[in-house]
Design a protein around this nucleic acid. Structure first.
Lengths: 350, 350
DNA sequence: ATGAAAGCGCTAACAG
DNA sequence: CTGTTAGCGCTTTCAT
């Protein structure tokens, strides 16, 4: 190209400079390139319906050309809508919570929200430590695994004004909203189920968390009303796994060789129990019945297949997300507590 | 208290109003209450060393009194340090990736970083769809599971200038940094291991992802050099699970009843294979050897215990985090590619 | 050791 | 349909 220098030398230079700035590309660079104002770019991107089609087109081209990616920190700051939802789980590994998180992430993504993940690690006060870091990001909602027990934590959550959904449990006094099921009732029903099947000497193997304790309470109450012996309880440290299930059954058998059935607080434990029984030549269910909790994907295809308690994780996650969406979009919430229940899935092991 | 109205009526009112404002508590409210400027509060909280001890004390009291929680969106915007790290996994449920995420979350939390989680869902282009949402939050780093293959995705990641760590794989051309292991070499070594053990008719059962394909390539190459037959390959849809392992073995056996060993691309598959073998009365390892991949917690305590490939997930997560910390703190990075290797853990099943 | 001023990049509110 | 102005809450910079 020959140097036939026509007029707009400076403007062009400036335009190019704006189009490919040193630093990160901003709304203004895009606006300059598309020959509109910054607000128009913002609107073209966020509510295209309210902007002229041709303008939107021009903006989109400028975006493509510059590689502009909106700064969500800035947008979130100004609009007080971070498009972020936080979740706190005890631990992501170990099966059950991963399932919830997976569905939650999916439900959120479908609405353009992202998930901020925190792990409280089964420690007392683990949740509290995460709270400031989470509240500080001004998420649209916080999903807790289990109910928040620390008074200080509850206070801070309430003070934050952020929609809170507690899950995996039921309580008459939720911090805000809740979607879960009754562990007490679950323990109760499993007990009656086993009694109905003819088992009377039953052991309980669980992680040492609060929800397990409540299942045990329910179980014991039912045991009394059904007139059978109190169950033999064996607690293992959370998080639970296959090995702990094996060891737990070994300990239970050494104390009570005549046990007829085991109710495990997690399918991973139940799988361990199944393995230990197999190794010892104890036939399931004829010599020992086993019931799990969680209905993880392997439960149906183990051999013998595992009788277990099914919880609809996907629904729990979706309802939790829905609670938050409803709040974010200003819809009234009729019922802040949702009991999604559970069901005992009868298979070969009991 | 009697109403002996002394002078500073207005100031006091204002002070109280500032201390408990209608809206969210800001730095300014705290500053007013502590009788310092906003900057001082910021410094007292972020670099207490550079502020007078007594002032820090006063600020801390004001913070406690107001329940102030710093707005990280605002801070991140101004300082361009979001204290956020994003991770993209195909799916959080199903075992292996959950483990990595758990350790990553832990490593990040120890340094005051939070994890933003995205799920790409095993779909082609699943990662690309998440990219803008992630880049828009201006994270300090992005951890990818597997290497980024889409050219468009690579371009955008590079353009973002954000430190990227690819994991779970090895490539001579990483987007930025990488910590992983060679799936090809892994396939190769498992093949030689099995040959050394005397197995010659071997099947491969894996998810249908790229990393599995590379393990298979390595395996086949070794098969040629070891002069054994090409393996029988059975692919299942990712994510893998117990049931798919059972079905896959059934299909393999129907095609090749004389198979001697199976190498599974995931421990969950291997567990399914073990179950199917047990149901069919095929004894492991005497009639059929099984090798897994992942060394999940149940591998060591299954019966028979599972010979599998161990990968140090915790190290992978920690090194990935370290890469990002190094960048964030401006340290030079000598080597952008880290091979953490793997090891074959020999147990009963092979 | 502390403060005043400026501005990160965006969107709400109000024009026109 | 589009633009102007202002300011979200914080931290940087420069001053004192």
């Amino acid at each position: 190209m020959t140097k036939t220098a026509v007029e707009p030398v400076e403007p062009l230079r400036e335009l190019l400079k704006e189009a490919r700035p040193r630093g990160p590309v901003t709304l203004h660079n895009v606006a300059r390139l598309a020959n509109v104002s910054a607000v128009t770019v913002s609107r073209a991107l966020n509510e295209p319906g309210r902007v002229n089609k041709k303008t939107v087109q021009r903006v989109l081209e400028a975006v493509a050309q510059t590689g502009y990616v909106p700064n969500l920190l800035a947008g979130g700051l100004r609009s007080a809508r971070s498009k972020l939802v936080a979740a706190i789980v005890p631990s992501i590994s170990g099966g059950v919570f991963a399932e919830t998180i997976q569905h939650l992430t999916g439900a959120l993504a479908r609405k353009g929200y992202q998930l901020l993940l925190g792990q409280s690690g089964f420690v007392e006060g683990g949740e509290d430590a995460l709270l400031d870091a989470i509240i500080g990001r001004r998420p649209h909602g916080i999903v807790l695994t289990g109910i928040m027990h620390s008074a200080e934590g509850r206070r801070r959550l309430i003070a934050s004004g952020i929609p809170i959904v507690e899950t995996w449990d039921l309580t008459p006094t939720p911090v805000d909203m809740l979607v879960g099921f009754s562990h007490e009732r679950l323990g109760d029903e499993v007990c009656r189920f086993l009694v109905r099947k003819g088992y009377r000497r039953i052991a309980l193997i669980s992680g040492d968390d609060m929800r397990a304790r409540r299942r045990h309470e329910g179980f014991c109450r039912a045991a009394i009303s059904e007139n059978i012996a109190m169950p033999e309880v064996e607690l293992v440290a959370s998080p639970t796994n296959h090995q702990k299930g094996r060891l737990a059954l070994a300990r239970v058998l050494s104390r009570c060789p005549d046990i007829e059935a085991v109710f495990c607080g997690a399918d991973a434990l139940a799988m361990g129990v199944l393995t230990e029984a197999q190794v010892r030549g104890i036939s399931v269910p004829s010599q020992l019945a086993v019931v799990g909790h969680g209905d993880l994907n392997f439960a149906a295809t183990l051999h013998p297949s595992l009788t277990t308690v099914h919880i609809d994780y996907e629904r729990m996650a979706n309802e939790a997300a829905q609670f938050i969406f409803d709040r974010a979009e200003g819809r009234a919430i009729k019922n802040r507590v949702l009991d999604i229940g559970f069901s005992i899935v009868e298979r070969e092991s009991a």
